[in-house]
C-alpha cells in the first residue's frame, strides 16, 4: 500500500510500499517514531482513510475503493477504536457512550442499553453506568472507550496510543484488560511508540520513513 499526501507543492509519501498480513486472533503492535507513517497506517487499517495505491482487504472484502458512507458502515461493524484521548461524548453518560455505535447500526434503545450495561460490567465499571466522562478518572474513561470498542463485536480492536494519557499503574490495568480481550479471541492492533506497551503484543511491526523496518514475533510478551 502507498499513501501520498500533497501539501502545497510538497508530495509526502507517508506510506511508501507497505505490505502486511494480519490474521484473525493476532495481538500485534505497530511501532515507529513520529513521522514514520504509523498514524497513516492506523487510519487506513481503521478505514478512516484509503490508500492512494494498493489494496486493503479486510475480512475478504476490498475496502480501498469504498465511498464515505460505505466506510462508515465498515467502521461501525468491523472496527473498535480506542484512542489516546478517549474521544468520549462529554454530555453522554457511560452507558450512552458505549451504546453510541449501536445507534448507527439501528439497534433499539432497550436492547442497546442492555448490551452497553453488560459491556461496562465486563470492563469493571458496573457501578459507573450513569457517570459522565468528566466524573470519571482517566483509567475509567479508557475502560468506557474499550467497552465502546467491543460493543459491536468487531473484527479488529484498533488502539492508538491507548495509554498515552495514563499513569503507569493505570496503563498496566488497561494493558491487562487488552490481554483479557485478546485471550477471549479478539484481534488487537496497538499503535504506539512505547517499547513497554508494545512488548505486551505477540508480534511487533516497526515502521520507519513509510516502510516496514522489521516484522517479528515477540516470544516473551509482558504479562500484565
Amino acid at each position: 500500500m502507498r499513501r501520498r499526501y500533497v501539501i502545497g507543492t510538497n508530495v509526502v509519501n507517508a506510506l511508501d510500499g507497505v505490505s502486511l498480513t494480519i490474521n484473525k486472533g493476532e495481538y500485534i503492535a505497530i511501532m515507529g517514531p513520529s513521522g514514520s507513517g504509523k498514524s497513516t497506517l492506523m487510519n487506513i487499517l481503521g478505514c478512516l482513510d484509503t490508500p492512494t495505491s494498493g489494496t486493503y482487504v479486510l475480512n475478504g472484502v476490498d475496502v480501498s475503493e469504498m465511498g464515505d458512507d460505505e466506510l462508515s458502515d465498515v467502521r461501525n461493524r468491523e472496527i473498535g477504536f480506542v484512542f489516546q484521548t478517549f474521544n468520549l461524548m462529554p454530555r453522554y453518560s457511560a452507558v450512552e457512550n458505549v451504546a453510541l455505535p449501536l445507534i448507527y447500526n439501528g439497534v433499539g434503545l432497550r436492547n442497546r442499553t442492555h448490551r452497553a450495561e453488560t459491556a461496562l460490567e465486563n470492563v469493571g465499571l458496573g457501578d459507573r453506568m450513569e457517570h459522565k466522562p468528566n466524573e470519571l478518572s482517566g483509567g475509567q474513561r479508557q475502560r468506557v472507550a474499550v467497552a465502546r470498542a467491543l460493543i459491536n463485536d468487531p473484527s479488529i480492536i484498533l488502539a492508538d496510543e491507548p495509554t498515552g494519557n495514563l499513569d503507569t499503574k493505570t496503563s498496566i490495568d488497561i494493558m491487562s484488560l487488552f490481554e483479557q480481550i485478546y485471550k477471549s479471541g479478539n484481534t488487537i492492533i496497538v499503535v504506539t511508540h512505547e517499547e513497554d506497551i508494545a512488548r505486551h503484543a505477540r508480534r511487533i511491526v516497526r515502521l520507519r520513513d513509510g516502510k516496514i523496518e522489521s516484522d517479528m514475533d515477540n516470544p516473551n510478551p509482558t504479562m500484565a
Binding site: L48, D69, D73, N76, R77, F81, L100, Y104
Partner: peptide, 11 residues
Amino acid sequence: GIQKALGAKSY
C-alpha cells in the same frame, strides 16, 4: 469526528 469514526453516516 467521533460520531463519524464510530460509524455515523453523512446523512
